[in-house]
Design a protein around this nucleic acid. Sequence first.
RNA 1: GCCUCAGUAGCUCAGCUGGUUAGAGCGGCGGACUGUUAAUCCGUAGGUCAUAGGUUCAAGUCCUAUCUGAGGCGCCA
Length: 484
Amino acid sequence: MSKRTEIQTILEDFKPRVGQELTVMGWVRAFRSNRFIALNDGTSMGTLQVVVDFEQIPEDVLKQISFHACIKATGKLVESQGAGQDVELLADTVEILGAANPEEYPMQPKVQSLEFLREKAHFRMRTNTFSAVFRIRHGIAYAVHKYYNDNGYFYMHTPIITGSDAEGAGEMFRVTNLDISNPPRTEEGEVDFKEDFFEKPTNLTVSGQLQAEIGALALGKVYTFGPTFRAENSNTSRHLAEFWMIEPEVAFYDIFDNMDLAEDFCKYLINHILENYSAELEFLDQRIQNLEKNMPKNERRAMGLIETLRFVVDNDFERITYTDAVNILRNSKPYKKGKFEYDVEWGKDLQAEHERYLVEKKFQKPVIVRDYPASIKAFYMRMNDEQEGVPGKTVAAMDVLFPGIGEVIGGSQREERLDVLKTRMADMNVHEEELWWYLELRKFGGAPHAGFGLGFERMVQFITGMGNIRDVIAFPRTPGNAEF
RNA sequence: GCCUCAGUAGCUCAGCUGGUUAGAGCGGCGGACUGUUAAUCCGUAGGUCAUAGGUUCAAGUCCUAUCUGAGGCGCCA
């Protein structure tokens, strides 16, 4: 394959290349007037105009220049006579690398619904919307590593297969190589996992946190960034059975340090995209505006996408306690008018409608809620001292709530006191034998520490403005769907 | 898992209270067009109305079941 010049390289710095003979390769976005090809190679939002002379190009080649056909074109880069672009390539030769017969190819040069494109996951990345989303997705992933590396954290790989089912984050996927239609049985008739690969029941991980704590209590500051699996039968626009989660875990951090980290980290990620993917953001912003043009005003976003991102970066997140939240909600208009479907009562978890009120109506910016009732939170969260005006026991837990998405981060200061932890585990029916190593971390050289989990796709959703989480991961896994 | 809505041409949709041969735009195909920018213009072919039953003289339209999709809720990241 001869050398190609990437289209983004040409577009961002065309001046020194004018007059040069170049080869480009990419997918046809449009073929106008039998003469002008808009060519995109995925390197950016932009297209390079390739101009062909029908007297120079064989007719069978010309005929195959159709939507999303892959071509190679060689010619001279010149300043464009047309108004829409700075430069264009006058093609001496055009080669069809991969034709795309329009009579059979399902993609069309027009706006197609996200639902339809979801069924064409192998082609949807070629569209403006999805190529923008996936370039930004990469950008966020890169920024995650850059942020932690620049701040002295170590990237830690926690296991995908776990032998513990006490991680307390929902239903798990069983991992086994037993013959499930005829598994070996014990004398009592139970499935005999002694015969299984690991000689015990194992599952796909629902969180790397417990292992990350091991890292934090040795390396000080660590983070994980890997796939996470939940076998919940969740059918919503913000849940996946397989998703990516970022979990920093930091020794000597308390809940307040944890909140500072969460806020700073979110802002860094958003800033990185604002600074490096403005063309993609502008496209997505425009896309949403076009979509909302036909909607009633009250269903439209209060701010544009870029405006929202700037606003989040420029303003402090609101920080309140769970008890504050309950008081605010009980004094709110919708509560008094009986508009909430679920009651607000100290000790009950906040429902999505309550969180949405706090974030979208009351504060109109990200909100960090902390100090939740102990009874509704996981065993490893640190028990708070009793506080005045608070009716029950609380733990140092925190949720970061974003507009439109809800919970993006869930975290806590961890319980480092062995006796308190043991009591909590007993109360919540978590077996000590399974987590003996977790307890020994407290017994030997323990330290106060804290951390959180950030749902990567939810952050991608927020930054791209995509409404459905299935449209920010290349191959979504949801109940009843594992195609591609 | 629960609730609601939807499934008509390749795509997006129209088809009023059941009533002749099922419509449009875009896309495709054929043609015109060598400075276009969602190119334009002319012509043309596409449909077991999701599937299976049922009601009726008559069903795209009503009823039942199933499948698929979307939105909301719960679980959470």
